[in-house]
């Protein structure tokens, strides 16, 4: 299992993962925090939430963020899946979560999550990562901060070049 890296106030560290990701064929554990695939969330989410449990939803790369828009205030975590690192759909999902839906819970990148993408993940608003390449938090942050300047607005708080130039 990849170790979880969490980003908090610009610092990254390994974190204990309290969540259990429930695979399609698995039983939902009787207690504790869970991450459910979207289909499972639709059938079981209501009960789990009413029992006061922390619930996250896992979206496959072809599932749209709009499908959970109504539930976001109750979700403590959204996990976005990258089956291949080349599949970039969920970069958009993360930005929409942060910038359009104002989501402030954890956005976690799972799947083929590699250090070379760290800068894109962080800039799009992800704050938790399960690196498939065994990256340490130090390596992850070095990759994420490799560039002293950025050119575009993202979901992070970095000023793009066109703002830096006015200062």
């Amino acid at each position: 299992m990849p170790k979880l890296i969490r980003l908090h106030d610009g610092h990254a560290a390994f974190a204990n993962d309290a969540y259990v990701t429930v695979a399609d064929e698995d039983e939902t554990p009787a207690s504790g925090d869970v991450i459910l695939p979207l289909e499972r969330f639709r059938t079981e989410g209501e009960v789990l939430l009413s029992n006061g449990r922390n619930v996250g939803v896992l979206l496959a790369s072809d599932q749209a963020i709009e499908d959970i828009a109504q539930d976001l205030t109750r979700l403590s975590l959204v996990a976005l899946s990258f089956p291949k690192f080349r599949d970039g759909r969920h970069y958009t999902s993360a930005r929409l979560l942060r910038e359009r839906f104002g989501y402030d819970g954890e956005i976690r990148a799972v799947g083929e999550v590699l250090r070379e993408q760290a800068v894109f993940f962080v800039r799009c608003g992800f704050d938790a990562f399960e690196p498939a390449d065994g990256s340490t938090p130090e390596q992850w942050m070095a990759a994420a901060g490799r560039f002293r300047h950025v050119y575009q607005r993202g979901a992070d708080d970095r000023d793009p070049a066109f703002i830096e130039r006015t200062q």
């Binding site: 970039g88 970069y91 800068v119 950025v150 050119y151």
Partner: peptide, 12 residues
């Protein structure tokens, strides 16, 4: 400049 390592559009 806008396109250079665009965070959202580098894995189209």
């Amino acid at each position: 400049q806008w396109a250079a390592l665009h965070p959202e559009f580098s894995f189209l």
